[in-house]
């Protein structure tokens, strides 16, 4: 019951007019930039263009991207958390779950990121940030 109130099923419901099952393969495997076209196409169907990029006339990334590669700071929706089990579990504890929203505050001098999620500010190192795939809200 709670599963439907919050989390990634909400994400599917909002973005998938055809039904949940269509997207399951996308979340069944860890995603990366060079992922097969079949799965990325599914995400490209649900992607929303970044409003800031749109305003500036820039081309937003067509698919879910690792957090450090996102085009702008601002609100994002988590598509998947890749990485090892402990990283995923730790991220889940902090509220970074597939379907949840976060705000990218800034990127550091490297590829580390500072995000705001559930009202708290969290700093992520480059590998952890890269394991979070996001799409603009």
């Amino acid at each position: 019951m709670f599963f439907n109130q919050h989390g990634f099923t909400e994400f599917f419901r909002e973005n998938d007019p055809k039904g949940l099952s269509v997207f399951l393969p996308v979340f069944g495997t860890p995603m990366s930039k060079d992922q097969p076209e079949a799965s990325s196409r599914l995400l490209s169907d649900i992607q929303r263009l970044c409003k800031r990029c749109d305003r500036r006339g820039k081309q937003a990334q067509p698919t879910a991207t690792p957090l450090p590669e996102s085009c702008c700071n601002g609100r994002m929706r988590v598509c998947a958390v890749t990485g090892d089990r402990q990283t995923c579990a730790h991220m889940a504890t902090l509220g970074v779950l597939p379907g949840s929203e976060l705000e990218l505050l800034c990127k550091g001098s490297g590829e580390q990121c500072m995000i705001k999620v559930n009202g708290g500010t969290i700093s992520l190192d480059a590998p952890t940030a890269a394991s979070i795939l996001v799409a603009p809200v």
Binding site: F8, L24, F27, G28, C88, A92
Partner: peptide, 9 residues
């Protein structure tokens, strides 16, 4: 296999 997440998530 179904959701691509661990039980912890």
């Amino acid at each position: 296999q179904t959701l691509g997440v661990y039980p912890e998530a």
